[in-house]
Design a protein around this nucleic acid. Sequence first.
DNA 1: ACTTATCGATACGCTAGCGTGTCGATGAGG
DNA 2: CCTCATCGACACGCTAGCGTATCGATAAGT
Lengths: 213, 213
Amino acid sequence: MTHASSSGEAGSSAFPDAEGSPSPRRRGEHARRRVLAAALEVLAESGMPGFTIESVARRAGASKATLYRHWPSASALLVDAMDAEFRPIPDVDSGDVRADLISVLTAAAALFDRSPFPELMAAFIDAAERDPALAGLQATLTGRRRQPLLNVVVKAAREGVVPADVDPELVVDLLAAPFFYRRFVAHRPIPADMPAAVVDHVLGSLGRPLSGK
Amino acid sequence: MTHASSSGEAGSSAFPDAEGSPSPRRRGEHARRRVLAAALEVLAESGMPGFTIESVARRAGASKATLYRHWPSASALLVDAMDAEFRPIPDVDSGDVRADLISVLTAAAALFDRSPFPELMAAFIDAAERDPALAGLQATLTGRRRQPLLNVVVKAAREGVVPADVDPELVVDLLAAPFFYRRFVAHRPIPADMPAAVVDHVLGSLGRPLSGK
DNA sequence: ACTTATCGATACGCTAGCGTGTCGATGAGG
DNA sequence: CCTCATCGACACGCTAGCGTATCGATAAGT
């Protein structure tokens, strides 16, 4: 398989290497990268309705034939582009759990204010709803972005800063979710002190789990 | 103006009444309702890319001319359709704050499993990102759906079940957000006991606010 | 029963994207 | 320096949606 297929796992990012030729020409790599970047630009600007082979090719200064050479469909192209965009996020570990959480969440909140992330995210949410390959990729990418947060929470649990019987994944949900919710659902502003407020609420609940469960 | 314009406030839902005729014929109401229902079906099935005047008309068994008679654009039609779909949610007040919260969240979580709500929501998130009228409508509709939760929280604060100095809106965010996040961002399942777990975490944090704020 | 606004159907020219195919140009590997 | 895979460009027939216009049919109000 020479390109990311819409049914395959996310993140292969394999070159289009012909199986017969011993040492394939790699001139295509430049074109490929330009197309991936153009794809994200188009998606951010026009959303799924405007995400079109012709439109991406035009933006990339590439020929349609080149796109079809690399990807079998617009959906497959989108998978590759999104996978290339969202790289892993660096970890933090200052020793202070609260500070680390606030730091990560503040960085994340900043993303919501800067193009093209929110537009891409919104378009991707819609697309993933109807394309299983995109849904799987979104799950993978989300897990990737959750990792630093999860690491801090797990470490805190190991050190006893937080009770060991709580589900770390749920804690990460509680921490990260409000920002997505405000930005994409409620459409209300995210104040600068929101990361601290969220962290304090969640940490507070973990320090003193309810008895009446 | 005879129809909901894309720049107007949400929820006018006015009939198309000609200003000159004293007693306008209202046959159009049937057609109008069929079209609104069809619009939501199409949107849920095909997302924004497939949300098309022709497609909606076909589904509604209506003529394109009829659609253009009622709405100036596809966006205006979408505003009306979404506004008609999401009616206010009934309040709950059993006297038990925890039980009330869990009840509302469980009902909400059930929505995520049943078409066409999630598909509509996803499509709407994308659409609202690029159309200010839709963004405003989404904010209005979201506020409408938050109301029951907000009432419970405010009541709890008034009764002292919860400290009075917390921001009720933020509490509602913390309660509602994780479900949207799981469904549309993380693409992970929502277990049956998640509403209780979320409520307990959030209530726990409110019962014992952090000192280090 | 008559009037009349609204209806569904259908047709129009137009644009845009699709997916494929064919060029000559080009640039990296041998 | 030569070769050949890949490139960009362009053209093709096709489909789908756009927005407008014009019909006779229909059903509500009088």
